[in-house]
Amino acid sequence: MFEQTDPNQIQLTEEGELKHFITTEGLSRELLTEILDTADSFVDMSAKQVKKVPLLRGKTVVNLFFEASTRTLSTFELAAKRLSADVLNLNISTSSTSKGETLKDTLMTLHAMHSDMFVVRHSSSGAAHFIAEHVTPDVAVINAGDGRHAHPTQAMLDMLTIRQAKGDFAPLTVAIVGDILHSRVARSQIHALRTLGVNEIRVIAPNTLLPRNIETLGVKVFTNMQEGIKDVDVVMMLRLQKERMNTALLPSESEFYKLYGLTMDKLRLAKPDAVVMHPGPINRGVEIASSVADGDRSLILDQVTNGIAVRMAVMSMSMSGQMKSRGNEL
């Protein structure tokens, strides 16, 4: 009953090009690699004197943030500006929704202003999907984080960072540590790592922070940090989101740090050349020790730099696909 079409196909044109960027799930290895290659070219460009390219000249990009954010919003803004787009930042959490306007109404209003791209962050899983499928299919929708579902640009900047550090994905064992349950980052990382073909993906967390049947996503589950981190090549820490800790998930931050916090002692169990990543903002002394975060194995600041390049890549690729599906080339 109800033959299922792959719901992730809504982000692709008939030719298989990106026209929205909503999730890493269901995208081919070729497409993910193309995003990384495109981002790489922007990394080189960002180091130059003139940092702008005209790929989105004359296009209007609206950053629609229904949830507070500093880092993601500013990297999206910079990325759009470096592509020569006109950028409008809207912090909706404090404006129209408090006046009772529905998400759909807000979007339709902005659509009437002839926007070309919506970069959307929303607290509800499926929000980007809903907008791309039902509200404004002819505006390129870039998911900047929806509930616990997906944060695909974060995952892709992590992939770029791993590729820069390690070269090849195939031999790698990667551990994702911390609040998997609430993490859209973890879900997007898992799909991307699987598609890019790493050897093994591990998730490390207490049972209270693991979603049901997480192993069906193709990961090995560890509840003991010492066992889980043993001989891994990459350690990806997650932020322990205090604002979501509204139920009895953990006895205390200090107990969490003792058991799952990444310290030098625990990091020694990983491979000698293992690298450490974190999507930020970091909680020092809660999920990661300062000595690790600031140490020479940490790639945390590289991730931020790569964030701009990856966002430039998916924005330019999605706009190009969107224009083609609208019948005019970019």
Binding site: E25, G147, R148, H149, R212, N213, T216, L217
Partner: peptide
């Protein structure tokens, strides 16, 4: 329902 689909979609499950 709190199952694999729920985990993938990142929704809150009802066990």
């Amino acid at each position: 329902h709190d199952g694999s689909t729920c985990t993938r979609l990142g929704l809150n499950g009802i066990p």
